[in-house]
Simulated assay, not measured.
Amino acid sequence: MSKPRKTEAELIAMAVAELKAHTEYAEGILIAVVRDGNSWEFRASADQETIGRPGYPECVAMLVQIGDHLSKQYALQEE
């Protein structure tokens, strides 16, 4: 059985919503979806100011967990 497909924008929106619910969301964090064969994962980037804020490392760690969870549920839709 194939997984439901979501666009990159939908996946990022889901991640941001979950981050805001579970961590002190680091405003300024940029989230990208990176395809790896048939799977995908989130990548975070930010400027130095955002990286230096309290809670940034926790936000990135949570993003990894969210991406792992969502990638098991959803496939990345071709755009």
Rank of each mutant, 00 (worst) to 15 (best):
K6M: 11
P57E: 15
S2W: 07
A75P: 13
L30S: 14
A13H: 07
T7E: 07
A21P: 01
Q77S: 10
E41S: 10
D47R: 15
S45D: 14
D47L: 13
A46C: 09
L11E: 04
P57N: 13
S71P: 01
F42V: 03
S2A: 12
L11C: 10
I29M: 14
Q65G: 13
R35T: 07
V16E: 13
E24K: 03
C59R: 01
L70M: 02
T50Y: 10
P4W: 05
I66L: 07
L76V: 08
I51M: 12
Q77E: 15
M14D: 09
Y74H: 03
A13C: 06
H22Q: 09
W40T: 08
R5H: 07
L63R: 08
K72P: 00
G52H: 07
L63H: 05
L11R: 05
D68K: 04
Q65P: 00
E24I: 02
A46E: 03
R5V: 05
T50V: 14
V34G: 00
E78D: 14
E41L: 02
E8R: 09
E24D: 05
I31K: 04
A9K: 15
G37H: 02
H69K: 09
P54G: 08
V34Y: 00
E58Q: 13
S45N: 11
Y25T: 00
M62W: 02
M14Q: 11
A44P: 06
K6W: 04
P54W: 06
H69W: 07
V64S: 14
G67N: 06
S39C: 08
E24Y: 01
T7N: 05
E49R: 11
K20C: 12
D68V: 00
Q77W: 03
G52E: 11
E79G: 07
I66T: 03
L11M: 11
A75L: 15
A15S: 11
H69T: 04
S2G: 08
Q65W: 02
G28P: 02
I31P: 06
V33D: 11
S71E: 11
V16P: 00
I51A: 08
F42R: 05
V33E: 11
T23L: 03
R5L: 13
L63Y: 09
Q73E: 11
A46T: 08
